[in-house]
Design a protein around this nucleic acid. Structure first.
Lengths: 235, 235
DNA sequence: CGCGGAATTGAAAGACGTCAAACTGTGTGG
DNA sequence: CCACACAGTTTGACGTCTTTCAATTCCGCG
């Protein structure tokens, strides 16, 4: 993981924070200008490519991150070498919260799409949060969001037949507004998310496509017939 | 859910907190005597029987809880009526953290074994935590613990063949010291935890018993041959 | 144009779910 | 004290779904 390239464009840092496009949804939404004066360490923006790891399971965590663009998977590797995807992190989500507690990271954070993120020293966030109730509350909120996500990952995506799992995954990935675009992942990743094999994932997606529930518009990008898939789920 | 019986023995309340046997592992471990003066609302201990619900999915949460004895399952019901157990809560664990954020509870909390717990008004905990860094940190810690538990629930108990899942569940429930006692749950609950049917759960447990890996000592209580089961998992 | 990784497809074996029946232990009432 | 009912467990048979292993096709990229 080389930061070289990214470090150059990095020091937009603190200044950017105040005018951040994600300001409202970002971790620091509640901070005042005065608060920012306590931010001594830089807040770096890094960009990495698909397949690269942001951090690894077991590394001692000193930073947490807010994702600005892109998609990251949190992965655990099983003893037999296969992977299980535990969660997806999307724009405006936070990852690496365990760093705040001085604990090692518990997943491998690996890029799916190219991304860009803000990197916050745990120390800084800790200090700020003890002084600032808004930030404190925001942190709890984010922890809870991760927990909710983990729970629904279990009930939605790891329960029932393979077809139901794929159906629920697609509904979850599809854009809420018409036309319901849906950026699908590699079949191996789909399998790792749903706890099924790559082949079964592929077969199921292909079947949906043949039924006309999915129409490919670009590489791995589809338009979804949400009504049809929902109806199939309801049976 | 009637509190009548329990309310009688309840008002040990605050005083008890300072001498609580769980003091070290409890949420309030970091509180000072002075802090306790801010606790105006009572801290109640309730006792309920297996099958009864502590709270329900969707109820607006005003309290969080620390379990003192017993076992609670956090359940979500699927559209088709079946249940999926999302997590188990054991002694000294906290549940209902979402109440701190003013959010409705996200699970049904249902007793498996008879239990006893402390009931903390969210309001009180919120007030205290803004003043007390130790409590604040302890809260983060507990949120993280729940998250870790959720993640390993997914990777350990919802991945791989039914036999592997059951094996991992047993290892997780077994006492760490010799003799490795293990209090197993009803087959339906085992199924709901592992995402398999009651019958498959029953068959698998029966098979383990026939192989001598499990020896029943009392109703649903077994001694576990950890070495054998681990070896089976490793294959 | 050809290479390589990903996706698709096929066939066969195995695992799991489903439905139904038999069994067990527990508690109840006669 | 026994008979009975009941709920949970166990077991069997069968069908379906999923995995496995292998072969083939597809697509982006050099």
């Amino acid at each position: 993981m080389t930061h070289n390239l990214s470090l150059k464009e990095a020091w937009s840092g603190i200044a950017d924070c105040e005018n951040c496009e994600l300001r409202q949804s970002a971790l620091f939404a509640g901070l005042t200008l005065q608060d920012f004066q306590h931010v001594h360490d830089p807040i770096i923006q890094v960009v990495l490519q698909p397949g690269e790891a942001l951090y690894r399971d077991g590394e001692k965590g000193k930073r947490l991150f807010t994702l600005r663009h892109g998609l990251i998977k949190l992965v655990r590797y099983l003893p037999d070498g296969t992977q299980r995807i535990v969660r997806l992190v999307r724009s405006a989500d936070t990852l690496g919260l365990e760093a705040l507690l001085g604990q090692p990271y518990e997943h491998n954070a690996i890029a799916i799409q190219e991304w860009e993120l803000c990197c916050l020293p745990a120390e800084t966030v800790n200090n700020l949060s003890e002084r600032n109730p808004d930030l404190y509350r925001e942190l709890l909120q984010r922890w809870q969001r991760a927990l909710t996500s983990a729970d629904s990952w279990l009930t939605d995506l790891s329960t029932g037949s393979a077809r139901r799992r794929v159906a629920r995954l697609i509904l979850r990935l599809a854009e809420p507004a018409e036309p319901h675009r849906c950026q699908l992942l590699g079949r191996e990743d789909i399998g790792a998310m749903l706890g099924i094999t790559t082949e079964t994932a592929s077969r199921t997606v292909a079947e949906f496509r043949r039924k006309g529930w999915l129409t490919e518009t670009a590489h791995n990008e589809y338009v979804v017939d949400i009504a049809a898939i929902s109806a199939d789920l309801a049976e």
